[in-house]
């Protein structure tokens, strides 16, 4: 059974079709890339699978549950979305702790470990608003992986990251994949995606171009 199934998904916003008849089947333990230029529908597709937007027509099933019917959001998901930040007056660790407090499945140790994995110092006393863009991006990634979710979705994860951190991110993603997580990455950076993903779907004007499916296998 496929972990994620999208059947005939369309999304129309203000009379513009942002996703057009998308049909996808994704497996656990693999990294999928979504490649396309700005406005091609990559972020929309990620938001759709995350349950943040509802399809105009079609169906999204994640781990056997249809979104909008059986569940609002995938049960075990780590997500980064562009332009979503954290509480400006708290340190990075405090922000993660507040989020971890919702599910209460991890403690201080796991939070510290997630911060270290992305190259942030758990003892850093600086507030989120004092973070650089790169640090903010790292914190978002730490937030997505800290609870060891079954589904990890990263929207433009390499934005603002230096080369060293991008390499570190690749290692993290491979480790998560080996753990059995299903990973979806949306990016306009071709090289990064084709390096890391098992399969890359190319999006253009809301269409997923099946004949452009590429990747490492």
């Amino acid at each position: 059974m496929k972990s994620i199934v999208l059947k005939g998904v369309n999304k129309v916003i203000k009379k513009i079709c942002v996703l057009n008849n998308v049909n996808l089947e994704l497996d656990k333990g693999k990294i999928y890339g979504l490649y396309g230029k700005n406005g091609s529908g990559k972020t929309m597709l990620i938001r759709m699978i995350a349950g943040l937007i509802i399809p105009t027509t079609g169906e999204v099933t994640v781990f056997g549950k249809t979104l909008g019917k059986d569940a609002s959001f995938p049960e075990s998901m780590g997500l980064t979305i562009e332009n979503v930040g954290f509480w400006p007056n708290y340190t990075g660790k405090e922000c993660l702790r507040m989020l971890a407090d919702v599910k209460k499945i991890i403690g201080e140790e796991e939070i510290d470990a997630a911060l270290k994995r992305v190259g942030l110092d758990p003892d850093d006393k600086r507030k989120y608003k004092q973070y650089s863009l790169g640090m903010k991006q790292k914190l978002a990634i730490a937030q997505a992986i800290m609870e060891k979710p079954e589904l990890i979705m990263l929207d433009e994860p390499t934005n603002s990251l230096d080369e060293e951190t991008v390499e570190k991110l690749k290692d993290i993603l491979i480790e998560e994949k080996e753990r059995g997580a299903l990973i979806i990455i949306a990016s306009h950076e071709k090289e990064f995606l084709y390096n890391i993903a098992d399969k890359v779907y190319v999006l253009s004007d809301g269409y997923v171009k099946d004949n452009d499916v590429r990747g490492r296998n």
Binding site: A50, S72, F73, L79, F86, W87, P88, L99
Partner: peptide, 13 residues
Amino acid sequence: TACVYLFTRNESR
């Protein structure tokens, strides 16, 4: 700020 990350961690809004 963190509404997306908060909501998606909750079973019910």
